[in-house]
Design a protein around this nucleic acid. Structure first.
Lengths: 181, 181, 181, 181
DNA sequence: GATGAATGAGCTTTCATTCAT
DNA sequence: AATGAATGAAAGCTCATTCAT
C-alpha cells in the first residue's frame, strides 16, 4: 500500500494524489486505504517515514568508509534508474510539508539527522585530509545537502540534464569544490 | 489578481490553492478570476511568468558589476523579508511544473536563461580573478543554482535556519567555495 | 435512480436536467448519482437503454399476432396515461442524441432494430392480406415509424390533440392508409 | 444576430447554446446580444418566429398549385442542402418548447396555421381527384405533418437515410399512400 | 480484514445577466 | 449602439471520509 502511495505521488504529484488512485494502484478498494490509514495525513506521513528510511540506509552504508564521492555518486545514480520515483515522491512531499504540520515534523527531524550524519562523515574526511578545512564541516554538509536538493528539484523538470556524462561532470565539480586546495 | 494568486499559492501551497481562495484574497468573486484567466492552468502560468520576471530583474541588476556576493546576498535577503512569499510560491510552482506541461515549459525556458546569465557573470569573475578557474563556469553556475534551489526547498520547512547570522555564514561558505585557491 | 433520471428528463427537458435534480428526485445526494454513473453521458445512455427496452418489449408482445392495430393502439395509449413520461423522455433524448455521440449510437442501433421488427410484422400482414402490397413493407415501416415519431413530437406541445376520441380517429386513419385497396 | 443564433442552435443543440456562443458566431460581444434581446427566452422566441416564417413561405408558394408532391419534395430537399440547419434548429426548438412557455405558444399557433393550410391543399386535391377521399383531409394533413416531423427527428441521427435515392422512395410511398385507390 | 454504497463539501468552469462607460 | 468588466448561481465532477455488512 505504501509502495502504491509513493508511486502515485511520484507520478501524479501531490496535488494529483487521491485515496482513490492509491487504492487503484494497490489493487484494492478505497475502503482498504482508509482501513490501514485513518486519514490522508496519516498515509502521507507514513510515506515520508518510508522514504527517509531509504535515505538513511544509504547514509549508514557510507558512514564507515568516508567515501563522499561514493555517497554523492549513489544520489546521482538514483536519478537515472527506476528509483527515480523515490526522489520524485520525496520532492512532492517536501513541497507539501509546510502545509501538513503532522509530517512537516517528520521531515524536519529526519532531515536534521541526515545533515548531522553527513557532517560527521565530512569531519572524518577533513581529519583524513580529503576534505578542505577552511569551511566548517557543518556548513559544508549544509551546502552539499542543498546541492542535492537543488538537483532533486530540477530532475522532474529537466531530466535530460542528468544523463550519465553530465552526472559525472557534476560529481567531479562537487568533489573539486570540497577538496583541499 | 496575480498578486492575490501568488499570495495564496505561497500561503496554502499549490494543492491548497483554489480559484475561490484567489478570488477571496483579491476581494472579488469567483467569476472575476475566470474572467481574467480562462482556466486554472492559465492563471498558474501567468503567476510563473510574473515570478520569473522578478527573478530576471535581479539578475539584470547584477549583470554589469560581476558582484557574485551581492547577487547571492540578495537571494538570501529575500528569504527573510516580505518577499519570502515570492520564493514560497516559486517553490510550489516548481514542484507542480512536471504535471502541468503548459508552464513546465515556461519554467524550463526561464530557468535555462537564468543559468546562462549566471554563467556569464561567473566567466567575467574568472577573467577578473575573483572566481576559481579549475571548474568550468557553466558547471559552477549549475552548482550555485542548485544550492539556491536547495535553500529554497528548506526555507518553508526550517525558516529558523535562515536567520541573519546563519545566512551570512552560508554566504561566506559559498564565496569561499567558488573563490580561487 | 434510472427512474428518477427519466422522470426529470421528462419533466424538465434535457437542458433542464442536472445531476443535482436527479439526485433530489431519487432522494439521494449528488454524490450517489456520480457513484452509480461515472458521468452525465453514462447516466443518459443508461436512460436511453432502459427506455428502448420498454419499446422493444411492446414490439415483442405483438410479434406473433400480426396485430398492427393493437400495436399502434398501444403507442397511442401511452400518450394518455402515466407512461406518457416515457415518451417525453424518449423525445428529449432523441433531440439531444446528435450531440452526445456515446448514445447517438445506442439510439441508432435500437431504432434500426425496431424498424426491422416492424417491417417483419408488416410482411406477415401483407402475406395474410391485411396490409397493402403496393408499397414495400420496409418503406411502410419507415412511414409508420415516422408517424409515431411525429406524434411523439406533438404530444408535449399539444397534448389536447391526443384525447381518446381524436386518438381513435388517428388510429383508424393510419389503418385505412396501410390497408389493401 | 438571429442567423447566428439559429446556426448555433442547429450545430450545438439547444442545451449547448449559450449567449456567449451566439455572440461569438455573430462576431459581437456578449453585451450586444443582451442589448438586442432582453433575455435568452426572447432570443429563442425570435428564432422560432423566424424559422416558421421560412416554413410558411414554402406553404404559400404551393398553395395555388395543389402540388402535394412538390411540397413534400421541397421538404425532403431541405434535408439535403445547406438549409438543413433550419430543420435542425426547428427540431431543437420543438424539443424545448414545452419548457419555455413563452414560445411554446408561438409554435402552437404557427403549427396549427400550417396544418390548416396543408388541409386546404388536400381538400382541393380531393376535389380534383388526386387525393383519396376515404380519409378526411384534416386527418390526412395530420398524418402528413406527423410524417414530416418524424423525418425531421431522424435526420440528425441518421442523415444517411435521406440520401437522394432513398428520399425519392419515401416521397413515392407517401404519394401512393394518399392517392385514390 | 476488506468492501462498496453513500455522503456532503469543495472543486473548476460555464452561464445569463447587469451596468458603468 | 455597443462594450467589457464583474457578478453570483448553478453546473458536472472529485474527493476524503463514514459505515453497515
Amino acid at each position: 500500500m505504501l509502495a502504491a502511495a509513493i508511486a502515485v505521488i511520484a507520478n501524479e504529484g501531490y496535488a494529483g494524489t487521491s485515496m482513490r488512485k492509491v487504492a487503484k494502484q494497490a489493487g484494492h478498494t478505497t475502503g482498504a486505504v482508509t482501513y490501514y490509514f485513518a486519514n490522508k495525513e496519516e498515509l502521507v506521513s507514513a510515506c515520508a517515514q518510508d522514504l527517509f528510511d531509504h535515505f538513511d540506509a544509504s547514509l549508514d552504508h557510507h558512514k564507515e568508509t568516508v567515501d563522499v564521492r561514493g555517497l554523492i555518486q549513489e544520489w546521482l545514480d538514483w536519478t537515472g534508474n527506476d528509483d527515480s520515483s523515490t526522489w520524485l515522491a520525496v520532492f512532492q512531499l517536501l513541497a507539501h510539508a509546510r502545509h501538513e504540520p503532522a509530517f512537516a515534523d517528520v521531515i524536519k527531524k529526519r532531515y536534521s539527522k541526515f545533515r548531522k550524519a553527513l557532517a560527521r562523515i565530512l569531519v572524518k574526511g577533513q581529519e583524513q585530509g580529503v576534505v578542505r578545512k577552511d569551511i566548517k564541516a557543518e556548513l559544508l554538509a549544509d551546502q552539499l545537502s542543498a546541492i542535492s536538493d537543488g538537483w532533486l528539484m530540477m530532475l522532474p523538470i529537466e531530466p535530460e540534464r542528468f544523463k550519465p556524462a553530465r552526472s559525472r561532470a557534476l560529481l567531479e565539480a562537487v568533489i573539486t569544490l570540497i577538496s583541499p586546495l
